[in-house]
Computed example of a mutant assay.
Amino acid sequence: MSAEDSGMPSEASFARLALAEHASMLADAAYHLIPTTRDRDARQGEYVAAAAPLVAAARRLLELAVMFERIKGTSWEQVGIDLSISRQAAHERFGQAERDFRERFLRAWLQPARADEVLVSADRLTHMADRLRTYIASRRDPDDQSATIQLEPMSDLERSTLIARASAMLKALATDQQISDSDRHEMELGLCRRKIELYEDLAAQDSENTELREALAGARARLAELRSS
Rank of each mutant, 00 (worst) to 15 (best):
D5H: 10
D5Q: 13
M8G: 06
P9F: 02
P9H: 02
E11S: 12
E11L: 13
S13D: 06
F14H: 04
A18P: 01
A18E: 06
L19R: 03
L19Y: 08
A20S: 01
E21K: 13
H22T: 04
A27P: 02
A29H: 07
A29G: 15
L33D: 09
I34L: 15
T36Q: 15
R38Y: 08
D39C: 12
A42V: 10
R43Y: 15
G45E: 06
E46P: 02
Y47V: 10
Y47S: 14
V48E: 10
A49N: 11
A50M: 12
L54A: 01
V55W: 03
V55L: 15
V55T: 09
A57E: 09
L64E: 00
A65K: 07
M67E: 11
R70G: 01
S75T: 14
S75V: 12
W76A: 03
W76I: 06
W76Q: 00
G80F: 06
G80T: 07
G80H: 03
I81V: 15
L83H: 10
I85R: 05
S86Q: 10
S86R: 06
E92A: 14
F94A: 00
G95Q: 06
Q96I: 15
D100P: 04
F101M: 07
F105K: 05
P112Q: 10
A115E: 09
V118T: 12
V118K: 01
V120T: 13
M128N: 14
A129V: 00
D130V: 02
D130S: 06
T134C: 02
Y135D: 03
R139Q: 08
Q145I: 05
S146P: 04
A147E: 01
T148G: 02
E158V: 09
S160A: 15
L162G: 05
A166I: 08
A166E: 08
D176R: 13
I179Q: 05
D183T: 12
D183C: 04
E186A: 12
M187F: 05
M187T: 00
L189Q: 08
L189M: 11
L189W: 04
L189C: 04
G190M: 03
G190V: 03
E197D: 14
L198N: 06
Y199W: 10
E200T: 11
A203C: 14
Q205S: 15
S207F: 09
E208Y: 08
E214I: 09
A215N: 03
G218C: 08
G218V: 02
A221G: 13
R222E: 13
R222K: 13
E225S: 09
S228V: 04
